[in-house]
Design a binder for these strands. Structure first.
Length: 110
DNA sequence: GACATGACGGCAG
DNA sequence: CCTGCCGCCATGT
């Protein structure tokens, strides 16, 4: 037996650490967890996070700032609504000024 | 065990 | 920036 936390539980922790008015990418979380290149696993974990945890998965988008996971939420609008409610402008399912709102756990959480 | 799919990302053209 | 291809690892059939 090991005391290490499961990969998706680590994703929950990092996701819950994302500051408000900030977003991050799957690859950034994956790299921070040492799973660099396995960004798909982050998305897999977050898909469970939406219904299986209280982590703000809506703050995680792909490397283009596109809200690819909105169809995993209760409604296709939920993700965008939550982000806009936090002050993040969304247009065409994409985060505006993504580079400015980007939060890298490997650098800022350091 | 093989094959296909998935909230992705990097690289080449 | 866009398109195409491969790598990544867990899950479902």
């Amino acid at each position: 037996m090991k005391n290490e936390i499961s990969f998706f539980e680590q994703v929950y922790e990092v996701t819950k650490l994302i500051p408000k008015h900030r977003v991050t990418s799957y690859g950034a979380i994956a790299a921070y967890l040492g799973a660099k290149g396995s960004a798909r696993m982050v998305g897999w974990a977050l898909s469970s996070a939406v219904t299986h945890s209280d982590a703000p998965a809506h703050r995680v988008v792909n490397h283009k700032g596109l809200l690819t996971g909105q169809h995993h939420f209760a409604t296709p609008d939920t993700m965008q609504q939550l982000l806009e409610a936090e002050g993040i402008p969304i247009s065409d399912h994409q985060v505006q000024d993504f580079d400015k709102f980007f939060w890298d756990p490997a650098k800022e959480l350091l």
